[in-house]
């Protein structure tokens, strides 16, 4: 540390410094990005080790085969061929995607009015509402799904409740163990993920735009569809992706409330790593899911941006 007083102190001895340490420091001082990346490097390193390398390994596994207890590391497309040859896989994959899409749609439709309410109607306690919405999301996913099993079950809360109120004589069979139960449970589980991006995009809308629309003669309904709705689209897109992508691979919800008709691709993948014990096949199935998800997401994003560019 050099002295910093009127006498100059140590600053005086500070002429041609060419030591290695000084030169390294000079380089760092000169390049801001270098300092930034240095600070970022531990995080990036951890992310690469824990995400990129494992996923790369997963892809490698999908080209290998299981030989009883050993892994045969000869490169082969056998697992991918198996996927397309067994109609059950393809059908299950399509069903999973359909269910996820449906669940995403339900979640968004339910979430939009709520986000709208917080963004436009809540005047003073926005924070409280936001926290109320967010908190359940952080609490145990497993327990929230489990709660639905308890509610929808044959002897569950709804059936027993309705019977004890005398509204029902026989328990309803159709509540649990079907795709609807899965969709309902997922929509509940991912609600906060959908609300927040929509809320942010609505909150960002400049209120004077709405006043301008009114001033130019729009009725409130026209104004909503011509101004608010298009401006909230980015939030809808983000919310849609945040719900759709993770739900495709879910296996907990289908397992607990889906029954045999409600199972999804995630359950098959999971069983490959459990009972079926065919890791390469499980790897291939998840790689195929990821590719399909990526294709869908990219098509979705390009089509929405194109649609927006067209209307603009």
């Amino acid at each position: 540390m050099t002295d910093q007083t009127q006498t100059g102190g140590a600053v005086g001895s500070y002429t041609e410094n060419t030591s290695l340490g000084f030169r390294v420091r000079s380089v760092f001082l000169k390049h801001e990005w270098l300092r930034g990346y240095t600070l970022l490097s531990p995080t990036l390193l951890v992310m690469i080790c824990l995400m990129c390398v494992p996923i790369f390994m997963l892809v490698a596994y999908s080209f290998w085969t299981q030989n009883y207890l050993d892994i045969d590391k000869t490169f082969t497309f056998a697992n991918y061929e198996a996927f397309f040859q067994k109609p059950i896989y393809v059908a299950l994959m399509m069903k999973s995607i359909r269910m996820s899409l449906f669940c995403t749609a339900v979640t968004l439709v339910l979430a939009y009015p709520m986000a709208y309410f917080i963004a436009f109607k809540v005047k003073s306690n926005k924070l409280v509402w936001l926290i109320l919405i967010t908190v359940p999301f952080w609490t145990s996913y497993l327990l929230r799904v489990f709660a639905w099993k308890v509610i929808l079950g044959y002897n569950g809360v709804i059936n027993s409740g309705l019977i004890s109120l005398g509204l029902l004589s026989e328990p309803l069979q159709f509540l649990l163990y079907n795709p609807t139960a899965v969709v309902l449970t997922l929509a509940h589980a991912w609600a906060a993920f959908a609300i927040l991006p929509i809320y942010v995009s609505l909150e960002k809308i400049d209120r004077s735009l709405l006043e301008a629309a009114t001033d130019l003669g729009d009725t409130p309904t026209e104004r909503f569809w011509r101004v608010t709705w298009p401006l909230s689209m980015p939030g809808m897109v983000a919310a849609g992706l945040l719900v759709f992508i993770p739900t495709v691979g879910d296996y907990v919800t289908p397992r607990l409330v889906g029954g045999t008709t409600g199972i999804m691709i995630g359950n098959i993948v999971q069983s490959q790593f459990g009972k079926a014990n065919n890791w390469p096949m499980g790897a291939a199935l998840s790689v195929i899911s990821m590719i399909l998800i990526t294709i869908l997401v990219v098509t979705f994003i390009t089509s929405t941006t194109r649609a927006r560019a067209k209307s603009a």
């Binding site: 494992p54 390994m57 997963l58």
Partner: peptide, 19 residues
Amino acid sequence: IMLPLVIPGIVLGIALLVI
């Protein structure tokens, strides 16, 4: 860095299992 939020949990799980 945000990627783990959108990769299905099952994929991350089995990838880490495999590695």
